[in-house]
Design a protein around this nucleic acid. Structure first.
Lengths: 85, 85
DNA sequence: TCGTATTTGTTCGTATGTATC
DNA sequence: CGATACATACGAACAAATACG
């Protein structure tokens, strides 16, 4: 209800951790499987959460490697203002 | 294999139709179910195809209604240059 | 207002392919 | 080669929004 979709909640959670500095630029984020277990959701849902961060321009995917915090290239990124609602 | 992912092929197909004028701005696109039947894929795959167009800024979603061709608001959209490969 | 049909939203599960380490 | 991780694709189910009669 108040919590909304799980995947957006997880995405917001991860985003907070990134912006908190728990994950720096270039750091590898936890993968789909680890996230699915940590939050008690399916792998699909964990994937959706990571997709939100990717769409927000916060992370980048690397096939066979994982997802990493996008190294800031342009200082004009409206990244922090993206609504994860 | 040689043809690549189905969802990207379908997305490219739809994009061509849009840019061909078969669907004008504001027009409602075929939904996930119609597309899944037309192309013989699952609803999930059809959804992925439509997601590509949405990510490309070509269409917008409306819950309970469907997806429509985005009415062009800004003429600076690098839309046509998006690679659907 | 209510009920129904349609469509998208969210979530689960599974399988297989491909890329990296 | 084997383990890990993302890529693609199938299926199913119920929720929520919208439109219409």
């Amino acid at each position: 209800m108040l919590s909304g979709p799980q995947y957006k909640r997880i995405a917001a959670d991860l985003r907070a951790q990134i912006q908190d500095g728990e994950f720096g630029p270039g750091d590898l984020l936890p993968g789909e499987l680890p996230l699915s277990k940590r939050y008690g959701v399916s792998r699909h849902t964990a994937q959706c959460a990571l997709d939100v961060l990717e769409a927000a321009g916060l992370v980048v995917r690397v096939h066979g490697r994982g997802r990493m915090v996008k190294p800031k290239t342009s200082p004009d990124d409206p990244v922090a203002s993206v609504d994860v609602r």
